[in-house]
């Protein structure tokens, strides 16, 4: 028996909790991820879908099934974004996978890229500097020095996987025009893994301080606002704070989801909650960073 997990028509950070709810049922049956009717998936949605595939593969005897989007353009976009290259490892794919090679373009600044170790972080940082400078300074109106800060934030987000997830993960970077949501161009970094999550990672060093209050939400608060780390080294735990500082400086958004909670640095242009608890459980951690085009003063 299989259980169908419907992939939302618009798979992005806003519909992710709906997707997580469909995924969360621990019935033990083989899962079928049905993306046939999916019309759009953001980088956050795509790396989250890969994390779901990995988690389902690791908890069951068989890889889950995945039906690819019926819309040819949507499937081609998933191919260009590098999704199918990695999906074959975690899904039994049904449907005709388009023969397109992952390639960066003016929009796909970094195709979906696995992050397994520090070498991958070096490669990602090198690639993004070369590809994003023109977009960040030319189209988004950020100072030229912001490119390095962007690479720094990306590096820290990726290292979060290497240092804390206990498994590999994925990163993707894309620029696009948010006509309806913001009316401006944005650059989006999406990072996801199916690892142990913040609560488990920090438990040994932080849980006793919180007692009964220890949860996914308090773990995220401790990590983002207090620089908590699973290491006792006082220099550890600065990465997320550094990302938050960068995002704040450029009126961007940072959102970190782990387990049943999500914490966010929310800019004036967004209506997300700073902290949301009681969400449908989802494995690992998912980080979203959005830098919008700067508005002339």
């Amino acid at each position: 028996m299989t259980r169908v997990v419907e992939v939302p028509a618009q798979l992005d950070d806003r519909s992710f909790d709906q997707f997580a709810r469909a995924f969360a049922d621990p019935s033990g049956r083989r899962l079928l991820f049905d993306a046939h009717a999916t019309q759009w998936a953001s980088p956050y949605g795509l790396v989250g879908l890969l994390a779901a595939g990995q988690a389902a593969t690791e908890r069951g005897p068989e890889r889950p099934l995945l039906t690819i989007p019926g819309d040819r353009d949507v499937a081609h976009y998933w191919g260009r974004a590098g999704f199918f290259e990695h999906a074959a490892e975690w899904f039994e794919i049904h449907g005709k996978v388009p023969r397109v090679k992952p390639a960066h373009s003016s929009d796909v600044l970094l195709e979906i890229t696995p992050v397994r170790g520090t070498d991958d972080v070096h490669s990602v940082v090198e690639a993004i500097q070369a590809r994003s400078a023109a977009i960040l300074s030319g189209e988004l109106g950020l100072e030229a020095t912001a490119t390095m800060g962007f690479a720094m934030a990306l590096s820290e987000a990726c290292q979060n996987i290497v240092e804390h997830a206990g498994t590999s993960g994925w990163v993707a970077v894309q620029a696009y025009h948010w006509r309806r949501r913001l009316g401006r161009r944005v650059v989006v970094i999406a990072v996801a893994d199916a690892g142990v999550g913040f609560r488990h990672s920090l438990e040994a060093t932080q849980a006793s301080r919180y007692g009964d209050r220890w949860s996914d939400a308090t773990a995220l608060e401790a990590a983002l606002f207090q620089g908590a780390s699973r290491f006792r080294d006082p220099g550890r735990g600065q990465g997320l704070g550094g990302i938050a500082r960068y995002v704040n400086r450029w009126s961007g958004k940072l959102s970190v989801r782990s387990g049943t909670a999500r914490i966010a640095i929310v800019p004036a242009w967004d209506d997300d909650n700073p902290l949301t608890d009681g969400l449908p459980a989802f494995p690992g951690s998912q980080v979203l960073m959005i830098i919008p085009a700067q508005q002339p003063e």
């Binding site: 940082v125 090198e126 390095m148 690479a151 820290e156 990465g239 550094g242």
Partner: peptide
């Protein structure tokens, strides 16, 4: 040096 991230700066 190109990019310097916080983890590396800490070390």
């Amino acid at each position: 040096v190109g990019c310097l991230d916080i983890s590396c700066a800490d070390e």
